[in-house]
Write a protein that binds this DNA or RNA. Structure first.
Lengths: 270, 270
DNA sequence: GCGCTTTATCCGATATACGGATACGTTGTT
DNA sequence: AACAACGTATCCGTATATCGGATAAAGCGC
C-alpha cells in the first residue's frame, strides 16, 4: 500500500489547515436556515447552496426524520419543522433583555394604539423577540417568522446605526434588498440616515417595509453602553402624519427604551 | 479493473446496514435540543448525551461560531442562540392551523379574562404556537420557551387523548414527571382520564402545571379527522371553582376549536 | 500554593460521508 | 396519448473528514 507522505502540503498555503471542520453540521444548519428563508423543493435548495444533489438528499432525509423539517406529502416542498420551533423558543426563556423589557413593553402596549415590538440583530436581519399588537390589524403577516433586513424600517436602522463603523461598512457592501418603492437602498443615503439617527437617538421611517405602515424605534443599551436591541412602535402610515401623535409616541418610546436599558444595568452618561 | 462481486456481504448481518448515517448532523441537533432543555456547561452536555468530550467540544465550537448557541463569556455556560430563534420562527409563517385559528383565537381573547393558547404536539411535549394573555398576569414564565409534558395540564392531556392507542402506550411507558403535587403520574389513572376526555370532548385540569392556575382545552381536527392541535384557556385556579364561569368558558372554547377545525377542512360526522 | 475539575488542542487510524452515475416517478408539453 | 424534461431516490468505491484517546493549559476551590 502506498503510504502518503506525511503532509503533502500544497504550495503557498500557510500550512496548518486541517481541512474544513464539521462539514456535515455546518451544511445541515445552512440548509435549515435556507429553508427558513425560502421553503421549497429539494432541488432549489441544492441549487441555492451549491451542494450536490445526493448530499442534499441525505441531509434533508435525516432532518426530516428528526422532525426538524417537514415535507408536504403531495408537493415535496420542505419547510421548517415543529422541533425547530421548540428549540428556537428556548432562546427566549431566560433572555435578559426580553425579561427586562417585558413590563415596560406591556405598559406601552396598553397605553397606545400601535404594535409594540422588541427586536434584536441577528446577522443581516432584525429579528422580533416580542410583539404585542393591540386590536388594530396593522401587521398583516404573522408577527413572528417575518424578519427584515437591517436597512429596512426604523428598527433595523436603529440597530445598524449603533454598530461599529466597520460593521456598517460590511453590511452596506452586501446586497440591499428593496421591500417597497420607498425603501432606501443607496449606501450613501443610508449612511447619512444612520448618522442622523445616532445623533437624535431614535428613528422614524414610513412605508419602507410595508407601504401602509410606518414605525418609530429607539435603541436599548446594556451596562457596557452597547446597543443590544431596539424597541419599535408600528402604526398606520396616516397616523404618523400628525406631529402631535408622533410626539406622544416618541415620548413613550424613549421612556420604554430607557427603562429597559436601566433594567439591564445601563446608566446615563459615559 | 477488478469488478467487485455484486454485494460482498459481511457474514451474519441481515445485510443492508451501511452504518449510521450523518452522525455529525444528528449529534449536533441532539446537542441543540439538549441545550434547549437544560442550558449549562459543556461537560454536563457531554455527560448527558454520552459523547466524548473532544467531539462535543468540536460540535459546540462550531455551533457557537455560527450563532446557533451562545456561551456566556464568564461562566462558560451554553444556551440556545439567536439564530435558532430566527430559524424556529419560520415554522409559524405559513402554519396552516395557526393561520386558520388566528381570528378565532383573537375573538376569544378579547371576550374573556383568560390566557388563550394554541398548542400542538411535538414528541413528548405540548408546544405553544400562540399565546394571548389579557392583562391578568396568570402565566408567570415567559409564554414561549415553556413547554410541558403531555400528561400535564389540560392541553397536553387533550393532545394525548386523541392519539393512537399505541402512541399512548408508548408515552405512558416513558418517564412521567411531576410538575406540582397535583400532577397525575400514575399511568393507570391517566389512562382513565384520557378516556373520559375523549368521551366528553374537552379537558379540564387544575393545579397540575402551576398550582395557582387551571386550564380548559379542546381538540382541533383537520379534514382527515386527526387531532392536530388544541385550543387552551388558562385562568386562575379560583375562577374555575365557579361552575357558571366554567360553563361560559367552555362554550367559547368549544366554539373556537370547532371554528378552527372547520377552517381546516374538517366536517362534522364521520 | 496545591490538587482537581473543566476546557483546549493534537494526531493517526478508520469508519464515514461525498458525489458521479443510474434508475425510477411525476409533471407538463406538443 | 406519448414523449420529454425535470425532480426524486438509491447505489457504491474512494478520499477524506471525523473520532476519541492522550496531552496540555486554564480555572477554581481549599
Amino acid at each position: 500500500m502506498v503510504q502518503k507522505k506525511q503532509n503533502a502540503r500544497r504550495g503557498g498555503g500557510p500550512a496548518g489547515d486541517r481541512g474544513p471542520a464539521l462539514k456535515g453540521v455546518r451544511r445541515s444548519l445552512q440548509v435549515l436556515e435556507y429553508i427558513a428563508l425560502n421553503p421549497g423543493r429539494a432541488t432549489d435548495v441544492a441549487a441555492g447552496l451549491n451542494v450536490s444533489w445526493a448530499t442534499l438528499h441525505r441531509t434533508l432525509s435525516e432532518l426530516e426524520q428528526g422532525g426538524f423539517v417537514t415535507r408536504e406529502a403531495d408537493t415535496n416542498r420542505y419547510s421548517i419543522g415543529a422541533r425547530m420551533w421548540f428549540i428556537g423558543t428556548a432562546y427566549l426563556a431566560g433572555h435578559k433583555m426580553l425579561e427586562a423589557a417585558q413590563p415596560y413593553l406591556d405598559d406601552a402596549a396598553e397605553g397606545g394604539d400601535y404594535t409594540v415590538q422588541l427586536v434584536e440583530r441577528s446577522g443581516r436581519l432584525a429579528v422580533t423577540l416580542y410583539s404585542y399588537q393591540t386590536a388594530g390589524e396593522v401587521i398583516t403577516k404573522s408577527t413572528y417568522g417575518y424578519h427584515f433586513p437591517l436597512h429596512c424600517g426604523s428598527k433595523g436602522q436603529v440597530l445598524l446605526a449603533y454598530c461599529e463603523a466597520e460593521d456598517i461598512d460590511e453590511y452596506l457592501n452586501g446586497p440591499l434588498e428593496s421591500l417597497t418603492p420607498e425603501t432606501v437602498t443607496q449606501p450613501k443615503a443610508l449612511r447619512q440616515r444612520l448618522k442622523e439617527i445616532k445623533a437624535q437617538g431614535y428613528a422614524l421611517t414610513i412605508g419602507d417595509v410595508q407601504q401602509f405602515t410606518g414605525s418609530l424605534s429607539a435603541p436599548v443599551f446594556d451596562r457596557a453602553h452597547q446597543a443590544v436591541g431596539a424597541v419599535c412602535f408600528i402604526t398606520k402610515r396616516s397616523a404618523l402624519r400628525d406631529a402631535a401623535v408622533v410626539e406622544a409616541m416618541l415620548e413613550t418610546l424613549l421612556r420604554t427604551a430607557q427603562s429597559t436599558s436601566l433594567a439591564l444595568g445601563w446608566r446615563p452618561g459615559g
